[in-house]
């Protein structure tokens, strides 16, 4: 049988994926420069990891990047919440809970066979849904730091201005950790999987087909 291809990612998912990658790159690196201006803890980040050159430059990048991140995030969340495809493939729901443990066992090599799953398995759905909620958290805490007077209630909800700053940093850290895990998964899943996030199409794997439902 000739190798066939399978349509994996609709255009909006591919588009928002790479915009998000760019936006987060800008937000995290310029954010580190902003952090360095008044460190929360007893360390600063090496300036090679930062964007903007100085505080004003970093702020220019950060407050440009925030629009990319927010508008792109709205498009991604909108698609995944409003379309049947998005809700079915990406949104973690009650019915997915039972699938989390088997997937963990599979990744930890306790279980040999890949548990049956749709486009994304239960653990992926859980991760994507959680990191999206963290995205909302990053935006809300960001608003509370950008507008502590106009949106003082958001800062209060996060425990005050100084605590909101820590939360903002925690959410940013979660994105970096997510990227680390994501990269490991992408490398393990192989080239064809990576290409599908650009072209939309993935080489159909016969073996994989068996485990799918």
């Amino acid at each position: 049988m000739a190798p066939t291809k399978e349509y994996q990612h609709p255009l909006i998912i591919r588009f928002t994926h790479w915009i998000n990658f760019t936006a987060l790159g800008v937000m995290v690196t310029s954010g580190l420069r902003i952090y360095n201006a008044s460190p929360l803890w007893d360390f600063q980040f090496p300036s090679v990891l930062t964007l903007g050159g100085w505080l004003a430059g970093a702020r220019m990048w950060h407050f440009f990047g925030m629009w990319l991140f927010v508008l792109n995030g709205l498009a991604w969340c909108g698609y995944n919440l409003l379309s049947k495809h998005g809700r079915k493939t990406t949104l973690f729901r009650g019915t997915d809970i039972s699938g989390v443990l088997p997937m963990l066992q599979y990744y930890l090599r306790i279980r040999k066979a890949h548990p049956p799953s749709g486009k994304y398995n239960a653990l992926q759905k859980l991760t994507y849904t959680t990191v999206s909620i963290f995205g909302v958290g990053a935006i809300l805490t960001g608003m509370s730091l950008y507008w502590p007077v106009q949106f003082g209630w958001i800062a209060s909800a996060f425990g005050g201005y100084d605590t909101a700053r820590i939360w903002h940093f925690v959410f940013a850290t979660s994105f970096v950790l997510f990227l680390g895990g994501h990269l490991i998964m992408v490398i393990t899943a192989g080239w064809s999987n990576f290409v599908s996030m650009i072209t939309g199409w993935k080489k159909k794997d016969v073996q994989e087909e068996v485990t799918r439902t």
Binding site: T29, S47, L51, G52, G53, M60, F64
Partner: peptide
């Protein structure tokens, strides 16, 4: 990424200032 660790210059700076 190399070179991003400096203050915005030229077209990048004028774009960022306009956005500001």
């Amino acid at each position: 990424l190399a070179g991003c660790n400096s203050a915005p210059e030229g077209k990048t700076e004028s774009f960022l200032r306009t956005f500001q």
